[in-house]
Design a protein around this nucleic acid. Structure first.
Length: 270
DNA sequence: AAATTCTCCTGAAGGC
DNA sequence: TGCCTTCAGGAGAATT
């Protein structure tokens, strides 16, 4: 499932193929994603050039001369660069056609999105209220501790809240909390400044490491060239309930916290 | 205001 | 073999 490392891997993978390239066509086979794909996209995009391929949180941003195409992969989406004449599969909902290739969105569960805006992005409702990027200097221990003060919500929910920090999904939240030795259900406001600093650092480390590995491939995710990501083999706790804790050997536990599966070691994480 | 629950959707996995 | 049930999950919307 695409989290920040997967989206960043996708961004860097597709950018060389489409940056500076002119859009020659748009194909919408299934407009009903999380929100409907705008009906007039072909008119808006046709003949325009992709000036830049950027990322904010888990949104991919294709900057055109007249606005910005916003793409989100939801939890089962993937983008691939393919030859223009590649026969589409069942869940290939959207294509951007270029002279030499096709950028194709596949999204079996249709939680993804393809949206358009010609307004400044920082005013867009999906972007305006997002917290800092986890790999930026703005996200650090002092900031996280400040955000956690007076909050009774579980720390895992806090770091997965996009208003606090973006791009930390379920997999990496579990991994970072294990590496920081913090119990996922611990109330956010009851974590010291020093431990918040450790957590912020582990979030950065695990995300950066996953980007290097091309993301984590579980079920549907694949890179733009169809290859899987390789971070799955470095996961310490995610999906390993009943397995031995890498730290102390006791069995890892699984518990639902905030409607999400959480994996942890009750001995190493407090 | 903060926290929790609901919602969209399909495929995988398990039970019988 | 195949049908039915359950579950996973990003994140905005709705509800408590």
């Amino acid at each position: 499932m695409p989290e920040l490392p997967e989206v960043e891997t996708t961004r860097s993978g597709i950018a060389p193929h489409i940056q500076g390239q002119r859009i020659s066509g748009v194909v919408v086979r299934q407009a009903q994603l999380r929100w409907p794909i705008p009906a007039n996209l072909a008119e808006l995009l046709g003949g325009r050039t992709v000036r830049a391929v950027e990322r904010r949180a888990k949104y991919l941003l294709l900057r055109l001369t007249n606005g910005c195409l916003i793409l989100h992969l939801g939890m089962s989406g993937s983008l691939r660069i393919l030859p223009r004449d590649t026969v589409p599969g069942k869940h290939d909902h959207f294509d951007l056609l270029f002279k030499h290739c096709c950028l194709r969105l596949r999204d079996p569960r249709r939680f993804g999105a393809v949206l358009w805006t010609d307004q400044p992005l920082d005013r867009h409702p999906l972007i305006a209220h997002l917290g800092p990027e986890p790999l930026s200097e703005a996200f650090n221990g002092a900031y996280l501790h400040r955000q956690a003060q007076q909050r009774r919500v579980a720390i895992k929910n806090l770091i997965m809240d996009g208003r606090v920090v973006v791009g930390v999904g379920n997999i990496y939240a579990n991994e970072a909390l294990f590496r920081a030795g913090i119990h996922p259900a611990r109330p956010a406001g009851r974590i010291s400044a020093a431990r918040c600093a450790r957590l912020a650092e582990e979030i950065k480390q695990v995300l950066a490491a996953a980007i290097v590995q091309g993301g984590t491939t579980l079920r549907d995710f694949q890179q733009e060239d169809g290859k899987p990501g390789y971070f799955a083999q470095e996961l310490l706790v995610y999906g390993k309930a009943g397995g031995a804790c890498p730290g102390c050997g006791s069995p890892l536990k699984q518990q639902r916290i905030g409607q999400r599966s959480s994996f942890y070691c009750s001995r190493c994480q407090r």
